[in-house]
């Protein structure tokens, strides 16, 4: 079975990602781990001094604790500000890349039966929206607008276009996680959740579900297939006329042609 993999990921950090949302994860990780590494090195140094020297060799003076504790509090607040900026970017989708046809339009999602607490705004320019439904044990993607149609397991999106993902679940709680596109989104029954991604490179990106959903949970994988806009429209048209699952073949064909990372 397939899992998200990280051919390009470093040993000690997440993959910088194929989307601005994935890059945010990378930057925040470096920030936290960088500060953490400084803290660990300082701890090792101070422990070394404390254990190596005899107490009478060290200066005897009362040292204050409050200034250091306040400094630690400022580090915590600084990280919170960085986290809040990241959260603000999660909630404010970036515009699509220049040259995106203006007929791409995100359609509003409405289901009066669902509660919604999501804070994600709708972007002004061209964008598209896909309804993502989690069900035991696959993901169903329903495209709106002129790309109307449905695909299972594979999400096919055009490169450079901001995609709003509207998450719902028709049975239990699932989490949609494609590491190259950032953190996971929960599909909670009774709720409507929203996230956004924008693929800046073509290729096939693997993902998994990260909320235990039952005995076949490990098989609830997904892929995001990013095609150039033209190829995407060709796929959408073929999809409209022939609803068979042609995604894999087309993606394999295109990823070779565009030099994307085939995984």
């Amino acid at each position: 079975m397939a899992l998200p993999q990280a051919a390009s990921a470093g040993v000690a950090s997440p993959n910088p990602g194929a989307s601005p949302t994935g890059q945010d994860v990378f930057v925040l990780y470096l920030l936290v781990i960088g500060l953490g590494a400084v803290a660990v090195l300082a701890l090792i140094r101070n422990l070394w001094i404390a254990l190596r020297h005899r107490p009478d060799e060290l200066p005897k003076q009362e040292e204050g604790l409050a200034p250091l504790a306040i400094a630690a509090a400022f580090v915590a607040l600084g990280l919170t500000v960085a986290g809040a900026i990241g959260m603000g970017r999660d909630h404010t989708p970036e515009a699509s890349a220049a040259g995106t046809p203006s007929d791409y339009k995100a359609e509003p999602f409405s289901d009066p039966g669902l509660k919604s607490g999501h804070m994600v705004k709708t972007p002004a320019g061209p964008a598209m929206s896909v309804n993502v439904n989690g069900q035991q044990y696959l993901w169903r993607y329903t495209y709106s607008g002129k790309q109307s149609g449905t695909s299972y397991r594979d999400l096919v999106i055009p490169k450079g276009v901001t995609v709003l993902l509207n998450f719902t679940s028709s049975d239990v709680v699932h989490s949609w996680w494609v590491p190259d596109f950032g953190g996971s989104f929960d599909a909670v029954p009774g709720y409507f959740n929203r996230g956004w991604i924008r693929a800046d490179k073509t290729g096939v990106f693997k993902g998994a579900s990260t909320t235990m959903s039952g005995s076949n949970y490990q098989s609830m994988t997904t892929r995001v297939i990013v095609l150039p806009v033209k190829n995407f429209e060709a796929w959408a048209e073929s999809k409209a006329s022939d609803n068979s699952d042609a995604t894999s073949a087309l993606a394999a064909e295109n990823s070779g042609a565009t030099g994307g990372t085939t995984k």
Partner: peptide, 14 residues
């Protein structure tokens, strides 16, 4: 701390 930042925590926690 890494898990506490929502953007990063959503990625790491699962």
């Amino acid at each position: 701390t890494a898990l506490s930042l929502p953007t990063l925590g959503r990625w790491l926690a699962g």
